[in-house]
Nucleic acid binder design. Structure first.
Lengths: 222, 222
DNA sequence: GTATATGATGAACGTATGTTCTATGTCAAG
DNA sequence: CTTGACATAGAACATACGTTCATCATATAC
């Protein structure tokens, strides 16, 4: 079976060329620049790969604008070109996956090349140690306060204080959920943000805190 | 006596616009972008000033190439722009104020020095035109989906499409609120995100859209 | 006055450039 | 063998965009 995350050599070539051209000329290349740069005979080939790269989130484009091309942070980190950005209060955070009912959050990963990343600034997260992001998928662990498609930023930790919003793995239900955390003796009360929902009360030993939510970002259709 | 190094206001405008455009879009502007940006009626005017600027060593151009334009270090230092800041994906957005019941959102401000700003990355907002941020204060216009302390990112616009989340000023109630927008004939239905709340229905003429919400950021206690 | 430089206008013109369409070859899955 | 993704080619099209030109107004210098 073909590796799912393998990006074709041609695509890597193109991203690399764009990056080089940008550094050299101070403007993005045209489709035909890329065509010559990577050595293909048709502009349609370039267009084809740019479409794929855009869909994969490596490139953003301004339709019909000449040189309307920009590399995303994902592409830059993919190139290992993070050295591009100097000082900057920009922080790159890995998106380790999605919250899906039935699966635990995977262990905090090393910075693999093709881990999806999210760029944030220190205006949003002040500290970057052990910070990671999760994309919320589906409604299973969601109440009115967190929606499908939201990105939650978490700091990895096993303990939580009362009132913290945490991602927890429930051993017995075999699922991850986002809730407010309250310790009550040998039990843990998991309180949905929406007061209309009933709290979940579990023995402490089946509740595994995976991380504490430090920010929630919701992007609406632009 | 006119100073020898005095550069016309128009020229300063143009250099400034190029610099801003570059930071926002990651590519140089076209002649027509500049034309609109500085408000002249003919592309020939832009060409004229670009020729002068090139001769004076403020810009370099690649003849006949679209967006074949780059600012020299001379231009950058002239602008007081700290050296050659590489095109960054960081965007600074003004926080124009808070949403408070009883007050309209102030008009979109010019970029004053002492406006509070928020740094975001393009991973969060892709476009920066007319984007501003509001801090949500109090609960008066809030439902379960937006909380006190949240920051909402908006693009300023007077119209809205059905389903957009917008900030609207209600003439008769004299207050601003965040709701989903639905046009229904001569009326507008303002739908809270929380289905448990009742929609507000108003005649279209008392509903003034102030901007469309493109992102919501909630920071929890670190 | 007559010059001369500066700044602006509107209308072209030519080509650079993104996009679309049709067609072809390869390769793995069924 | 057929089917369907993937990659490529070539040609044509529509328009985005740099450029040129003729014209006009307003200064300052001679």
């Amino acid at each position: 079976m073909p590796e799912k995350n393998r990006m074709s050599e041609r695509r890597r070539q193109i991203v690399q060329f764009i990056h080089g051209y940008l550094r050299e000329h101070g403007r993005p290349p045209t489709v035909r620049d890329i065509q010559r740069g990577v050595g293909v005979a048709s502009t349609a080939v370039v267009k084809y790969h740019l479409d794929r790269l855009e869909k994969a989130g490596y490139v953003e484009r301004a339709p019909r604008a000449s040189r309307g091309l920009r590399l995303t942070s994902k592409a830059l980190s993919w190139l290992g070109a993070a050295a591009d950005e100097p000082v900057s209060s920009v922080v790159r955070v890995p998106i380790v996956g999605s919250i899906v009912a039935g699966e635990p959050v995977t262990a905090y990963p090393t910075f693999d090349a093709d881990v999806d990343t999210l760029e944030l600034t220190r205006d949003i997260i002040s500290d970057t140690e052990n910070v990671f992001a999760l994309r919320v998928r589906g409604d299973s662990m969601v109440d009115a306060s967190v929606h499908d498609g939201d990105v939650v930023i978490l700091r990895q930790q096993e303990e939580a204080n009362n009132g913290d919003m945490v991602a927890v793995w429930l051993e017995d239900d075999q699922e991850t959920t986002l809730k407010y955390f309250y310790r009550e003796g040998r039990y843990v009360r998991l309180q949905p943000a929406n007061p209309a929902y009933e709290p979940i009360i579990k023995p402490a030993e089946v509740v595994r805190v995976q991380g504490k939510v430090i920010a929630i970002i919701r992007r609406l259709a632009a």
